[in-house]
């Protein structure tokens, strides 16, 4: 946090719902009276490219961009993408990471390698990482598209506001557009929250 501003960076690839997740976070921050700015670096986001979505909130936000080295929280929707952006974090900050590996065609056809162990590389830089496979969790709930709600659930206990505010801003969307999805999203949110708690615990026991 610089000048009372909270900086959250959400990253992933086009089509994963990164921008929607940040928008939901933004709505929650607004509901609590913060000034908010949200911006994306998304080159043709719909087509599997890199997406990084910046959310800044606090009393008064000027520049919408988070500068490298100043993010308070990094939420990575994909393994290598989390590694790509981790230098945006303030030293020692927290990373929430989906360990799913989404391999792009340039790796498939052998032009580049996918990093062996992004999680270890991020930890080696001194960041605390809560890692879990959000896609598996979403598939177990029956729909891979629940992945972004799982990720939002994982954030629930790391925000400067109560988790109910966040849950409410998720469910509000579904109540309006797809009421049949409300219950499933509530479950996905809780599953993400538990996955984060379990990952945090695991991390501690490794240290112990």
């Amino acid at each position: 946090m610089t000048d009372n501003i909270t900086n959250i960076l959400v990253v992933g690839i086009g089509g994963q719902g990164v921008m929607t997740a940040t928008e939901i976070l933004a709505e929650a921050a607004i509901a609590l009276g913060h000034d908010v700015k949200k911006t994306e670096v998304a080159g043709m986001a719909q087509r599997g490219g890199v997406v990084s979505s910046h959310l800044r909130f606090g009393p008064k936000v000027l520049s919408p961009q988070i500068m490298a080295g100043t993010a308070d929280l990094l939420v990575g929707f994909e393994s290598a993408e989390t590694l790509r952006w981790c230098h945006y974090l303030k030293p020692g900050s927290l990373v929430l990471m989906n360990t799913a590996r989404l391999v792009p065609p340039v790796v498939d056809i052998g032009l580049y390698d996918y990093p062996d162990d992004p999680l270890a590389e991020i930890r080696a830089r001194g960041f605390e990482v809560h890692a879990f496979d959000a896609m598996e969790i979403a598939m177990d709930l029956g729909d891979v598209r629940l992945g972004n709600t799982v990720m939002l659930g994982a954030m629930a206990d790391h925000l400067p506001f109560p988790s109910e505010v966040l849950l409410e801003s998720i469910l509000k969307r579904f109540r309006a557009r797809k009421p049949q999805m409300v219950e499933l999203n509530r479950r996905a949110f809780e599953a993400g929250r538990s996955a984060d708690a379990a990952a945090a615990h695991e991390k501690k026991s490794v240290l112990a």
Partner: peptide, 10 residues
């Protein structure tokens, strides 16, 4: 930044 493959739009 870490060295990560590029991910152009597909």
């Amino acid at each position: 930044a870490a060295k990560v493959f590029p991910r152009p739009p597909t």
